[in-house]
């Protein structure tokens, strides 16, 4: 009896110490196991600083909504983190994940159908609303209903400027079917086209943060440009985390994580703590 009991305790100790010391992840699904064995999670992120998502404050600390979200996820998973900021386009952010070079992409990434062909998307963690930037002179030509300015313009053949290859080209087409859309390489060029009196472009449609950042950087341009938020669920821009096509479990885990921590919200609520960095 005595010996038998000692053996049981001995086996228990061995089993337990193995758990603690050797960290056997063999029971975990492969996608989580790979991260755990590496000891840190690799996050694919856009190379440019974008307030309030990922940026450096005055003291050089790397902060922002996306950065904090990645850190919290790593902490909850019990691993470290590493940011891969090599991607220079949004497609490159996705590519990094699709090729398995990063575990997830947290980088103000819109859930588009073309991207979803190569990666898995979690549920959205921020819902961005599109905002319409209209030349105030152009706005005065249309009989805008102050309560429904967006809808009241749909009857007119507008000329819209958009950044090439963004989801907003499709959104603009669907919102104003009668209008013509001119595509530009950069957002700044599209907005400059609206500001140029000799150019026919009247409107730019972009996500609310992009517009807000632009107006914060060039406040004097609000004299000529009016912001009109588009409050229509169909045109909302949900930002989500992208994971590799094989990371089924990580995707599930992230969705559960969002649910339990009540992560998802509107831009106003989630980005309010970063308001001060606009100054």
């Amino acid at each position: 009896m005595e010996i038998k009991r000692k053996i049981v305790i001995f086996i228990q100790i061995i089993l337990f110490s193995q758990l603690i010391l050797a960290e056997d992840f063999s029971n975990l699904p492969p996608d989580i196991r790979a991260i755990k064995e590496r000891g840190y999670i690799i996050v694919s992120m856009y190379y440019k600083d974008v307030i309030p998502f990922m940026f450096h404050d005055q003291d050089g600390n790397f902060i922002g909504h996306e950065v904090e979200l990645a850190k919290k996820i790593a902490e909850t998973l019990g691993v470290g983190y590493q940011f891969d900021r090599s991607p220079q386009t949004f497609d490159e952010i996705v590519d990094l994940v699709a090729e398995g070079k990063a575990d997830m992409a947290i980088s103000l990434l819109s859930r588009t159908l073309s991207r979803a062909q190569s990666v898995r998307f979690t549920k959205p963690y921020i819902i961005l609303r599109p905002t319409l930037l209209i030349s105030r002179l152009a706005a005065s030509r249309y009989d805008l209903d102050p309560l429904q300015p967006v809808a009241s313009m749909s009857a007119y053949p507008l000329s819209i400027a958009e950044k090439r290859g963004t989801s907003y080209v499709d959104k603009a087409k669907s919102l104003y079917p009668a209008s013509s859309i001119e595509e530009y390489t950069e957002w700044e060029d599209a907005i400059d086209a609206v500001l140029d009196i000799n150019n026919p472009a009247e409107i730019v449609i972009r996500d609310e943060i992009g517009i807000k950042n632009y107006i914060s950087e060039f406040p004097e341009k609000s004299i000529n440009l009016q912001m009109i938020p588009i409050a229509d669920e169909r045109y909302e821009d949900p930002l989500a985390i992208a994971v590799n096509k094989d990371s089924v479990h990580l995707q599930e885990w992230l969705n559960l994580y969002f649910e339990q921590y009540g992560i998802t919200g509107t831009a106003d609520r989630l980005l309010a703590p970063y308001e001060k960095y606009y100054e």
Binding site: L147, P219, E220, S222, I223, Q226, M227
Partner: peptide
């Protein structure tokens, strides 16, 4: 002046965001 334009721009964008001007045109 540049600073005057910035102040006017800020006044206008604040009004755009709060939607305060629209209510008078109802």
């Amino acid at each position: 002046s540049e600073s005057a334009r910035i102040t006017l721009g800020k006044t206008l964008s604040a009004a755009d965001q709060s939607g305060s001007s629209a209510s008078y045109f109802q």
